[in-house]
Lab assay of single mutants.
Amino acid sequence: MFYPNSPQTSPQLTQIPYGQQYAMMQRQIQQPYHPFATTEPQARLYPYHYQGPIQQEQGGFITQQSTAASPQYVQMRVTPVDQSIMSGYPNQTANGSSSSSFNYNIHPQQQQQQQQQQQQLRHHAMPVGSVPLQDDRYRKQLIVNYLAPDVTSTDLHELFSRFGELDGARIIYDKQTNMSKGYGFVYFCHAEDAKEAVERMSGYEFHGKWLKVGYSTNPLNIVPSNSSPYVHAGSRGAAG
């Protein structure tokens, strides 16, 4: 039997160049792979992502010199942007860049009308829970959420009447099932009393439920100042 490094198959040491006398086997001759043993700084910083320098080929596509990437890492192929796409944008300079302001050559009167329309939209648009300043009635009506099913309009009136005089209180019921929808409205005579009720009743436990109280901004629920107070009856038909 002959071994790869046996004296019968191995040459004389004098015939082997210096430095390879003890590297006779194939696994010894093959050098191990060192990912950080390279002179390129990109490979030292990113050993798993770097795959060699990027070269520009004919046709405008950018390719990489090395083989496919590892399945664990996804390499994105980048193509140059066609400058003709950006030619339609206004205020574009000769080098292809555009300024931040756009001039669509709008007539001054049209621009003024658009600004007025935007101001009107901001004036009428009102986020949930906010209180408008032009109508004091919005500051007097509250919406009470997360009410228990057994709470009546009379219970709601008695709960909030300790903060001040009320114009009314009612629970909203479903017309088909005649069941409470879980929320109601309270109408105060003074805005200061309503503000105190919002601050003190939010998070209050009532009939096993934690109440959420806020201003009601729905104009359909506003009680006119010259109208008669609501009837605080315990029956659902009268309260709904």
Rank of each mutant, 00 (worst) to 15 (best):
P4M: 12
N5V: 04
S6K: 15
S6M: 09
S6C: 06
P7I: 06
Q8K: 15
T9M: 07
S10G: 10
S10I: 06
S10P: 08
Q12S: 11
L13R: 14
Q15C: 04
I16E: 14
I16C: 09
P17R: 10
P17H: 06
P17E: 04
G19M: 10
G19L: 04
Q20H: 14
Y22M: 10
A23M: 06
M24Q: 14
M25P: 13
Q26W: 06
R27P: 03
I29Q: 06
Q30Y: 13
Q30S: 11
P32H: 07
Y33C: 14
Y33Q: 15
Y33W: 04
F36T: 14
F36I: 12
F36Y: 13
A37H: 15
T38W: 07
T39N: 06
T39Y: 06
P41H: 13
A43F: 04
A43K: 15
A43R: 13
A43H: 11
R44Y: 02
L45R: 15
P47Y: 01
Y48M: 10
H49N: 11
H49P: 10
H49G: 11
H49R: 15
H49W: 03
Y50F: 09
Q51N: 10
G52E: 08
P53L: 08
I54L: 09
I54W: 06
I54N: 12
Q56D: 15
E57R: 14
G59W: 02
G60A: 10
F61H: 13
F61R: 15
I62V: 12
T63R: 14
T63K: 14
Q64N: 13
T67I: 09
Q72V: 02
Y73R: 15
V74G: 09
Q75F: 00
M76G: 15
R77H: 12
V78P: 11
V78F: 06
V78Y: 09
T79D: 09
D82T: 11
D82M: 06
Q83W: 03
Q83T: 08
S84D: 05
I85R: 15
M86C: 05
S87N: 13
G88N: 08
Y89C: 10
P90Y: 10
P90E: 14
P90M: 12
T93A: 11
N95Q: 11
N95P: 04
S98Y: 13
S98N: 07
S99F: 05
S99L: 07
F102R: 15
Y104Q: 10
H107I: 04
H107D: 04
P108G: 12
Q109T: 12
Q110H: 13
Q111W: 09
Q113C: 09
Q113F: 12
Q113A: 09
Q113H: 09
Q114V: 05
Q114A: 09
Q115H: 10
Q116W: 14
Q117W: 13
Q117P: 08
Q118V: 12
Q120C: 07
H123M: 06
H123L: 07
H123W: 06
A125W: 15
M126K: 10
G129I: 03
S130L: 03
V131A: 08
P132E: 03
L133M: 11
L133S: 06
L133V: 12
L133G: 08
Q134A: 08
D135N: 13
D136Q: 09
R137P: 06
R137D: 00
Y138R: 04
R139P: 02
K140G: 02
K140I: 01
Q141I: 00
I143Q: 00
V144E: 00
N145E: 01
A148G: 06
P149A: 04
P149F: 15
P149M: 12
P149Q: 07
T152E: 04
S153V: 03
S153G: 15
T154I: 04
L156T: 01
H157D: 07
E158I: 15
L159G: 00
L159H: 00
F160E: 00
R162H: 14
F163W: 03
F163E: 01
L166P: 00
L166Y: 00
L166V: 02
D167L: 03
G168K: 00
A169M: 00
I171S: 01
I171V: 05
Q176D: 03
Q176N: 15
Q176R: 10
N178Y: 14
M179D: 03
S180L: 02
G182V: 02
G182Q: 02
G182R: 04
G182W: 00
Y183V: 00
G184V: 02
G184N: 01
F185Y: 02
F185R: 01
F185A: 00
V186Q: 01
C189W: 13
C189G: 07
H190R: 11
D193L: 02
A194G: 02
G203W: 06
G203I: 02
Y204D: 01
G208H: 15
G208Q: 08
K209L: 02
W210A: 02
W210S: 02
L211A: 00
K212A: 06
K212L: 02
K212V: 07
V213I: 06
S216Q: 01
T217A: 03
T217L: 03
N218V: 00
N218K: 02
P219I: 01
P219N: 00
L220R: 03
N221K: 14
I222M: 03
V223F: 03
V223S: 03
V223P: 05
S225M: 09
S225E: 06
N226G: 05
N226C: 09
S228Q: 09
P229N: 09
V231D: 05
A233E: 10
G234T: 10
S235K: 05
G237F: 15
G237D: 05
G237A: 12
A238C: 04
A239W: 03
